[in-house]
Structure formats: structure tokens, C-alpha cells
């Protein structure tokens, strides 16, 4: 799908959607993608922590990305997925509306996030990739949990 030529740095990304936007994370952080399973609520946790799941005997937290990004909430449905990711050594699940595809894009089509978007969530954004007529928001996965406390 990408038009990369030899010698260029290629980014491999997993893209997914939240509401109408398309986002992507580095594939190296992604462990697997699952359907929504039973989620157990964690007492006194921030609201974006949806709960914990039991993934083959391992208990791990699941984060609702819509809530984390301040996007209006939506019930999970058949297309909803949990992306299991390794974030700074800790395994986490991220709930997204749907997972689209694996992308290979040249690193040089990624632009830094525009300065105007001074909103709360711009700090999670690593850059924006322009691809044909699509705009894909690259997420800085380490910032997602690192300073989540003040949100």
C-alpha cells in the first residue's frame, strides 16, 4: 500500500479508529489484538481505566482510549477491539472502536503535530501521517500512561 523506496526508513504501524478519526501505534509495541472479553472494574481507579481482563492467566489493565482522549463515550460493540500492548514493560489493553490494518509508511511523510492543537490530548500525539486522502494520527504510546495522572 505504501510507496516506499529502498533506503528510506519505514514505519510499521497498526491503525485503528476512534469515532471518525484514524490513529496508529508502532507495531513493535503491539502484542496481540483481541475481541472484548469480560472486564472487571477496578476500585477507585481513574475513569479511563475500564478495568482488568484475564488474558490466559495474566491479569492486565484495560484503558478506554475514548475516555482517555476525551472523546464522547460509546458502548463497545462487535467491531470493538482490545489492543494488547507493551507500554514501558507493563502489558496493557487499549479499547478502540475498530482495528483497520497494518501500515508500512516511510518515516518522512510523518509531520510533527500542529502547534495550534494545544488541547489536552495533543501531548499524546507523536505526529501526523498524510497518506493519499487520509490523515493518520500517530500516538506516542509511552506518554499515554507516563503522565496520565493529571488528566
Amino acid at each position: 500500500m505504501s510507496t516506499a523506496t529502498a533506503g528510506e526508513e519505514i514505519l510499521q504501524l497498526v491503525s485503528f479508529t476512534l469515532k471518525d478519526e484514524e490513529y496508529a501505534v508502532d507495531i513493535l509495541n503491539v502484542q496481540e489484538i483481541n475481541r472484548i472479553t469480560e472486564i472487571t472494574q477496578v476500585p477507585n481507579s481513574p475513569d479511563y481505566v475500564e478495568g482488568v481482563i484475564n488474558l490466559r492467566g495474566k491479569v492486565m489493565p484495560v484503558i478506554n482510549l475514548r475516555k482517555k482522549f476525551g472523546i464522547e463515550e460509546k458502548e463497545t460493540d462487535d467491531t470493538s477491539r482490545i489492543i494488547i500492548m507493551d507500554i514501558q514493560g507493563v502489558t496493557n489493553g487499549l479499547i478502540v472502536d475498530s482495528v483497520s490494518e497494518v501500515l508500512r509508511i516511510p518515516a518522512d511523510i510523518v509531520e510533527p503535530p500542529p502547534q495550534i492543537s494545544s488541547g489536552l490530548n495533543s501531548r499524546f500525539i507523536k505526529g501526523i501521517a498524510k497518506l493519499d486522502n487520509r490523515l493518520i494520527i500517530l500516538i506516542d504510546i509511552n506518554k499515554l500512561l507516563g503522565d496520565g495522572v493529571e488528566v
Binding site: V42, N44, S45, V49, V52, T91, L145
Partner: peptide, 23 residues
């Protein structure tokens, strides 16, 4: 539990019950 602030949630760990549920 990794990735959960156990201090504020008053949780010291989790256990998986016979039917696969988390307690």
C-alpha cells in the same frame, strides 16, 4: 497487578477464580 495504582484502589492483587473471572 501491573499498571494499576494499587495504593489508591485498596487492592493488593487479583485472583482468578475457577470459572476464569477476576476477583
Amino acid at each position: 497487578l501491573e499498571g494499576i495504582d494499587t495504593a489508591s484502589s485498596y487492592v493488593l492483587g487479583a485472583s482468578i477464580t475457577g470459572d476464569g473471572k477476576i476477583v
